[in-house]
């Protein structure tokens, strides 16, 4: 199991702050996103433009090809706009 947390536009599109999901061994962030997008319309809408998604695994920014083995928390969010 992995804890997913969502922020900003992604959080609003999915409608929850986060959720726990099963992750198959060897899954990358990209493969998990593909699976979630097939499971619900909300996820599909939130993940529609993959170029606008950014990720952090255990609070470190990473790319979509990162494997989720041993990851505790995956954050999915739009490009940051602070400052």
């Amino acid at each position: 199991m992995i804890q997913i947390v969502y922020f900003a536009r992604v959080r609003e599109a999915i409608g929850v702050d986060g959720e726990q999901v099963e992750v198959e061994a060897g899954s990358s962030i990209a493969t998990l996103i593909d699976r979630l997008a097939q499971e619900s319309d909300r996820h599909s809408a939130a993940f529609q433009d993959r170029s606008k998604l950014r990720f952090a695994v255990d609070q470190k920014m990473v790319g979509a090809d990162t494997l989720l083995d041993n990851a505790k928390e995956l954050a999915i969010f739009p490009p940051v706009t602070g400052g």
Binding site: F7, R9, T81, G83
Partner: peptide, 26 residues
């Protein structure tokens, strides 16, 4: 510090115009 904060720190800005709100694009 400010240039890299803009792209590396996990903040997201939403703009309000009266009652309507929209996320700011990077």
């Amino acid at each position: 510090l400010i240039d890299r904060l803009k792209t590396d720190a996990p903040f997201w800005k939403k703009e309000y115009r009266g009652e309507s709100a929209a996320w700011v694009e990077a």
